[in-house]
Simulated assay, not measured.
Amino acid sequence: MDLELKDKTAIVTGSARGLGAATARRLAQEGARVVVTDIDGEGAEATAKELAGLGHRAIAVRADITSGADVDGLVAAAEEFGGVDILVNNAGFPRDTLLTKMTDTDWDSVIEVILKGSFLVTRAVMPQLIERRWGRVVNISSRSYLGNPGQANYSSAKAGILGFTRALAAEQGRYGITVNAVAPGFMETEAVRSLDHYEKIREKAVAAQPLRRTGQPEDIADAVAFLASERASFITGETLHVTGGRFG
């Protein structure tokens, strides 16, 4: 299936590794020009070099997406590829602990990156999408929006992403812009594999799913590529759960 992404330009936040890197790779395979961006500049550079080595068009931009100045620089850097067509708001991280032990920093840092970061980057690219009368915004939420113990900060941020998605879909649809979300379940990333008791966590997650395997970053990348494509041109305001069938 041709997703018609050739020569489109995509920014993927948090794409030094994990789900973001897999998404950048998938979009590049479809012919998109990819701006790899992360607060980890060296990691972003490594991912961009990997893509370029495979014959894809990619650049790396080190950016803290909670900084307006960094976001402006990121969007300006995308002009090397002629501006932005696709934005994937992927950057984010958990900082898990029970509410009674959660510090202000635990709360603020997670909310700032996931919600404020998505707001700042989307606001910065939206004028270009409106001018083109075409655009795709794909926001990475999580099954955690349903609520996980020890993740009041992360669950709140990921639930907020869904409200952000629906509001923008209603607001920007008249310009030919679609805004959707992907909600991953348990994904086998490097960060997850490094967790204490990983095997026990993995077994519990897989047992709760109808599909008895771990999710892979490529599963998310495929979902994002579809939602960014012409094949999904009449889908907006939706949340695509990529969870192996687990919702609760």
Results as ranks from 00 to 15, higher is better:
G244H: 00
I39N: 03
I11F: 04
E112K: 15
V84I: 10
G173C: 06
L87S: 05
I59Q: 11
T23R: 07
R246F: 13
I59D: 05
V179Q: 00
S144D: 14
I177L: 00
G14W: 10
P149H: 13
Q128S: 00
D222F: 12
E45D: 14
L54C: 12
A78Y: 10
G245Y: 04
F81E: 01
E238C: 04
T178F: 04
V34G: 01
G20I: 02
R132P: 03
S233Y: 08
R202S: 06
A28G: 12
R17T: 14
L162P: 05
D64N: 15
I201E: 10
A69T: 15
A228R: 02
V121R: 04
N90S: 09
A170H: 14
G135W: 06
P127F: 08
E199F: 10
K49A: 14
V179T: 02
G82W: 13
T97K: 06
A10W: 09
K158P: 02
V113A: 01
G248R: 15
R143M: 15
A159R: 09
Q172C: 12
H241N: 15
L162W: 02
E30Y: 09
V137C: 03
G147N: 06
L120M: 11
T9C: 11
V12M: 04
E80F: 12
A69E: 15
T23D: 07
K49P: 09
A28W: 00
I201K: 12
T239Y: 09
Q172G: 06
K116L: 11
A159W: 08
I111K: 01
M1Y: 13
V71Q: 05
Q172H: 13
V125K: 04
A21Y: 14
D7L: 05
G31S: 03
T239I: 13
G135V: 06
K101V: 08
V125Q: 04
R143C: 08
Y154L: 08
T122L: 08
N180I: 07
T214D: 09
E190V: 13
P217C: 06
S118H: 12
R17S: 11
G73R: 07
V137F: 05
T66I: 14
G41T: 11
D106Q: 10
P94E: 08
I130T: 07
L195R: 15
H241K: 13
A63Q: 05
G150A: 13
L19F: 10
I140P: 03
V192Y: 01
A10M: 11
V12K: 06
I59N: 00
L19I: 14
V182D: 02
L129K: 02
D106L: 09
T236K: 04
K200C: 00
D38L: 05
L54Q: 15
A91P: 01
T9G: 02
R202C: 01
R62H: 10
D40R: 11
F186V: 02
A10K: 03
M126A: 14
R193M: 15
S194A: 15
A10I: 07
T243M: 01
